[in-house]
Structures are given as structure tokens and as C-alpha cells.
Design a binder for these strands. Structure first.
Lengths: 146, 146
DNA sequence: TATTGTTATACTCTATAACTATA
DNA sequence: TATAGTTATAGAGTATAACAATA
């Protein structure tokens, strides 16, 4: 199990970039395909998934890294399908709070569960690989989402 | 260094899903931001990066997991900017081969180099983390891109 | 007949600017 | 004045259908 010391030099950030991009691409394509099967664009799917709990439109737009007018359109189309609601905030009468309906929450979970390519890849990992991967993903995620 | 046995159970695929999504999102947002600074959409950037070597339009569309008519538009806009060329194939007169110009290749490399969020995250990893991460990314990538 | 690429069309994504209502 | 949300608008992404040229 032990690695001979000095055999493989420590990878540079550059060497990690391309394999990381491949992983990102595979995940993104899987999400897009699954969302499409439910007549959702990947942008709508991301918004639906982001709404783990109700939040004002402005917070949603910030979460999605997009303009507020964009969030208006995304939520509007999903509201028309009964997946989300927009209710006036009691605290600030300018603000509206977006929230998933039960149908929206169910769909979000179904999309997550139906990402079979990603699921299959993670299941194919050995227990050792999974154990090693989890803290690295948390670490990278913390560094990437400041 | 050794882990006490039995302290942490082996992560399930489900536990890996969410942290993986966070990493994917961070990478995607960084690429979109950098491409935008060069007046490229993320779709155009992906196409430009995919063109490591010349390929027919059909192969490019397959690579991008999109319709051929979509690739026509993407390449058309980048051709108008002098980033790619479309030349008739000598072998099959129905086919056209898309290729980057030197400017297109230079821009692709610049975009890769300017992804500072991702670069910063990878540089912040310890040598041990980088060494552990590389084979895991290759493994996941191979499983995700079949 | 089947395939390659394009065009026409329609809808969505996305940002900017202008607007209303509220703070 | 500043902020939250919407609307209007314009350009880009995307797929479907129809088409021309070639295999």
C-alpha cells in the first residue's frame, strides 16, 4: 500500500486543472440531461435546487450569480408550472420571498436522485477512494465558494 | 497520521454528491466570469477550449453535447471574431472542419490561466492533498466521461 | 437513402436600462 | 436617496424542422 518515496512528484495546480474540468463537465452534462427530461432548463434546475429554503428574490439572484431581472424570469416560469411561489414579505413590503411548493421540492429531489451518471461514478469508487475524496471535496468547495 | 479505525464510516455516494456539486458550481462560475471578461459566453469558451485540434462540425457538436445547428451558431460568431476558421474537408465534401486560429488558441490559454478562483483553490491545497486528489480526479473523470 | 451542415423559427437565458413601490 | 422587484428590450444559447449538397 505504501508509495515509494520520491517516485511521483507532488502535482502542480496546473496538472489538476484539466482532470478537474473533466469532472465538472461530466457533472454539468448529467444535470442538464436529467433536468431536460423534466422540461427544466439547467438554469431552472439550479434555481430550484438552490431554494432549499425560502429566500427573497434578491438573495436568490445573488446565490445564482445572476441579475435580479434574470431571477424574475426564471422564477416566473417555474411559478407558472406550480413549482415555486412568490409571496410578499411581511417585514419589507418591497420584498418578495420565493419558496418551493411541495411539487417543486419533490422535483428537486427527483432530479438529484436521477443523476445516474454521477451516482454511478461515485458508487464505482472503492471505499478507500470515497473516504479520501470526501474531505478533499469539502476542502476544495470551501476554497472555491468564498 | 493514522486514522483510528471505525471512527468515520465510509462515505456513501449521497454524501459525496453535495460537496461535489459545490466544487462544480465554483468552477463553472469562475469559467463564466473569466470568459465574460473576454466577451465570450461560457458556451463559446467551452467550444473554444474543446477545439484543441481541428475537427468537423459534427464532432464538435457531439463533444459539446448539443445540436449541430447550435454548433453552427457558436462557431459562426467566433469565426466573425477571428477566433476560429471553418474550412471544407478535402475527404468529404459535405463536411467542414473547425479549427482555432492562433488568436483563438491564445485566448483559450489565457482563459485557462485567468481562472484565478480555481487556481487559488488548487494552490491552497497542501502537497499531500494535491497528491491524493490527482488520481481521484482522473478516476472520477474516467467514470463520468464514458 | 443517409449524412453534413445550414437556415428558419420559437423559446429560454441573460444583462442593461427604465420604472414603481417602499425604505 | 437608496433598495427590491418588475418590465421592456436586445443579443445569445438551444432544439426542432426543413432544406441543399454530397455520400
Amino acid at each position: 500500500m505504501a508509495q515509494e518515496p520520491g517516485r511521483r512528484p507532488v502535482p502542480t495546480p496546473d496538472e489538476l486543472l484539466e482532470p478537474l474540468a473533466v469532472v465538472v463537465r461530466g457533472h454539468y452534462d448529467d444535470l442538464t440531461a436529467v433536468a431536460g427530461r423534466h422540461s427544466l432548463s439547467s438554469a431552472q434546475a439550479r434555481a430550484l435546487i438552490a431554494l432549499t429554503e425560502p429566500m427573497p428574490m434578491s438573495a436568490l439572484a445573488q446565490h445564482l450569480v445572476c441579475d435580479a431581472s434574470n431571477a424574475t424570469g426564471l422564477i416566473g416560469r417555474m411559478e407558472a408550472r406550480g413549482l415555486v411561489t412568490r409571496t410578499p414579505s411581511p417585514e419589507d413590503r418591497r420584498s418578495k420571498v420565493a419558496a418551493r411548493t411541495p411539487e417543486g421540492t419533490a422535483l428537486a429531489h427527483r432530479i438529484r436522485d436521477e443523476m445516474r451518471v454521477v451516482h454511478g461514478a461515485l458508487e464505482a469508487l472503492t471505499p478507500e477512494e470515497r473516504t479520501a475524496l470526501l474531505p478533499l471535496l469539502h476542502r476544495l468547495g470551501a476554497l472555491l465558494a468564498p
